[in-house]
Simulated assay, not measured.
Amino acid sequence: MPSMSNLQTLRRATEFLDYETDTVQKFVAEAVGDATTEAEKAVRLYYAVRDGINYEVYATKLSREALRASSIARSGLGFCVHKSILYAAAVRAVGIPSRLVYADVRNHLASERLKSMVGGEVFHHGLVSVHLGGHWLRVTPVFNGLLCRLYGMAPLEFDGTSDSVHHPYDERGGTQMEFLKDYGAYDDVPFDLLLERMRAKHPRMFADRDSVAGSGSLADEAPARTTSV
């Protein structure tokens, strides 16, 4: 059981979880609205990040500045690393302890072009651990509903009481995202370590030191689907 002092530390703003900025405060206020309980706030913030921040990989930035929650809220886009940072900051803004979690996963929501760029279906993945109701829950506010539908997947939901981790592969609840290696949880973005891992695992992903290669949109690369009547 985490101590109260440790939980208090995990509510604080940091270099990357800079929720005291006007940009993040505005994002949080608009998302939370009239929610009163911690669980309600965590759920509303989940959907604000999942569906309000566009999931995009190509040409995104990975500099220290670009990985601050305020920059992510301002740009309105990013992939799992970015969206998890914003969510971790947003829940801290309403008093909910959070940590950032990193893992290697086999990810089925990817175009052929993206898989070629990252070197296959295994991605270095970011998600969030939040402390709600006396328990740590793992939460993945990453793949927005529209993108999931384009790729034939059911969106990953969160109810504030259980983990939101194992993303179904298709609308029938088939193959789930497979977690291959868990690197643990961090109080703030382990910037140098994160970039070192990503460059080692996905060298073709980088256009330069801190920018992802490519242009265009992952949504535009979704496979054509036929609907049976």
Rank of each mutant, 00 (worst) to 15 (best):
A93Q: 02
H135N: 10
F206N: 04
R74I: 00
L147D: 09
S63A: 10
A31R: 11
A93L: 09
V57I: 11
V165I: 09
S70E: 12
M117A: 13
L86M: 03
H166P: 00
A88N: 00
K41F: 03
F143Q: 11
L7T: 00
A35I: 04
P168T: 07
S3F: 04
E178M: 07
E196H: 12
M1S: 02
A110C: 13
R64H: 09
I85M: 01
V139R: 02
A219W: 14
T37W: 00
T226E: 05
Q8N: 14
S3I: 13
P168A: 04
A66H: 03
T227V: 05
Q176H: 08
T60K: 03
F191Y: 14
L195T: 09
R106Q: 15
E30P: 07
Y19D: 13
C80E: 05
L132Q: 07
Q8M: 11
H202Q: 04
Y55C: 06
R92F: 14
D208I: 05
V49E: 06
G160V: 13
H202M: 10
E38D: 11
L86Y: 14
S3Y: 01
A88Q: 02
V229H: 15
F16D: 05
G133K: 02
P190I: 11
A73N: 05
A103C: 11
R92N: 03
G133L: 05
V189A: 08
G78V: 08
G120I: 04
D170A: 15
L62G: 11
A213G: 13
M177F: 14
N144V: 13
V24W: 04
S71F: 02
V118K: 07
